[in-house]
Amino acid sequence: GTPVVHISLRRDGAKNKSLICCRFMLSARAVGWGLTVVSVAGAMSSLSGSTCAGCRGLGLHRLGAVPGRDPNRTNDMLLLPPQIQDHSSASKHVVFFHGDIQNFHEEMALHSDAAPWVGWSLEQAGRVLGRRFPDSHIWVVRASRMYLHKFSCYQHFVQCNMFGAPEHSGYEAGQGAFCQLRSLLSNAMTRANLPHPLPPPEGSDTTIPPGFSLTLVGFSKGCVVLNQLVYELPGAQSDPLMSEFVQRISDMFWLDGGHPGGSETWVTNKAVLKELASSGISVHAHVTPYEVCDPMRAWVGREHEVFVKTLEEFGACPSKKLHFEDEPPSIENHFRVIQEF
């Protein structure tokens, strides 16, 4: 059966604050709350097979425990085939990295703090992206660990603590986010029996299929993967086994990036941003007041501004938009950026 984590939440203080927090950060947003893990019955199940209950009627296929750069670094994935078939759709791919709380539909429905947001499950996110990119394969990558069923941890892409706060580093051949991403896509395409799958980076023939293009989308915590890719970009471009793959990335979308660390929510390192600006990758930064206008985490807004302005200084033209700027900050609008970008 599905393993369950039983959690008791102890509230100190008089105000009736919501138990639901997109990041559930150990910060000012979580002051006055105590967490006690009562019991943990096993790890999250590795879901294998094809179509899942939450995917019926959506054209989604679930691929469980897809191996990345080594057999022990696996991620569950969802695949939504192109909704519009043409001569180029077989080669277009969009990869989505989700935020905290988001999980498969049935996992979210089991937990009271996630259930109110089940409308933003991984299945639903895949379907929304399918409407946004109807001529592309949509790949939803589930974080390899969901601490307390809330905190998405992408430790197979970037070093991070138990709450998913990252520690970014540069490129290392055969390691890191680029290698994990390419290996995941290669193995997932092979398992899904797609024609002309992406070859693994360590194979005898690493030639990228003709017309292959890649769009990367990170939402909230998922943006830590995009940030790590930016830190690795200079080295990856210099690696003959990875450079052609990097050149096939057409667009990167940051959607309301956020994580529980106290800095580096957005990349501000000028050296790596200079490489991003000259890479030819189209950069898109979509935010909401929930992240960039929070006075308790003022560095997020400042870092976002530095990210955009630095890219502009280096000659890039990142697209940027503040969504719902005339509405009060809310978790609902935070999620809605997935639909509105």
Rank of each mutant, 00 (worst) to 15 (best):
T2P: 15
L9R: 09
D12Y: 15
A14M: 05
N16G: 08
S18M: 04
C22G: 03
M25W: 13
M25D: 14
V31S: 06
G32R: 12
G34Y: 12
L35R: 11
S39K: 11
V40W: 10
A43G: 05
S45M: 10
S45D: 13
S45V: 06
S46G: 11
S46P: 00
L47V: 14
G49N: 12
S50I: 01
C52I: 00
A53D: 10
G54D: 13
R56P: 00
G59A: 04
R73A: 14
T74P: 01
T74D: 03
D76C: 13
M77H: 08
M77P: 03
L78G: 06
L79W: 08
L79E: 11
L80V: 02
P81M: 07
Q85T: 06
Q85H: 13
D86V: 09
S88Q: 12
S91Y: 06
V95L: 07
I101F: 03
F104A: 11
E106C: 06
A109L: 15
H111L: 14
D113I: 15
P116V: 04
W120Q: 06
L122M: 15
G126I: 02
G126T: 03
R127Y: 15
V128I: 15
G130N: 07
R131P: 00
R131K: 11
F133Y: 15
P134D: 04
I138V: 10
V140P: 02
V140N: 00
V141W: 02
V141E: 03
S144Y: 08
L148A: 05
K150V: 10
Q155S: 04
M162K: 07
F163Y: 13
F163V: 03
A165E: 10
P166K: 05
E167F: 13
G170S: 04
A173W: 03
N187H: 15
A188W: 04
M189R: 12
M189I: 03
N193E: 11
P201W: 12
I208K: 04
F212D: 09
L214A: 06
L216A: 09
V217M: 04
V217Q: 06
G218A: 05
Q228V: 03
Y231W: 15
Y231I: 03
E232W: 04
P234D: 05
G235R: 07
Q237W: 01
S238F: 05
Q247G: 06
I249Q: 05
W254M: 14
W254S: 02
G257L: 08
P260E: 05
P260K: 04
P260Y: 03
S263L: 05
E264N: 11
T268V: 12
V272W: 03
E275C: 12
E275D: 11
T288G: 07
E291T: 11
V292Y: 08
K309A: 10
E312M: 15
G315N: 01
A316W: 07
K321D: 08
P328E: 15
P328W: 10
P329S: 13
Q339A: 14
Q339V: 02
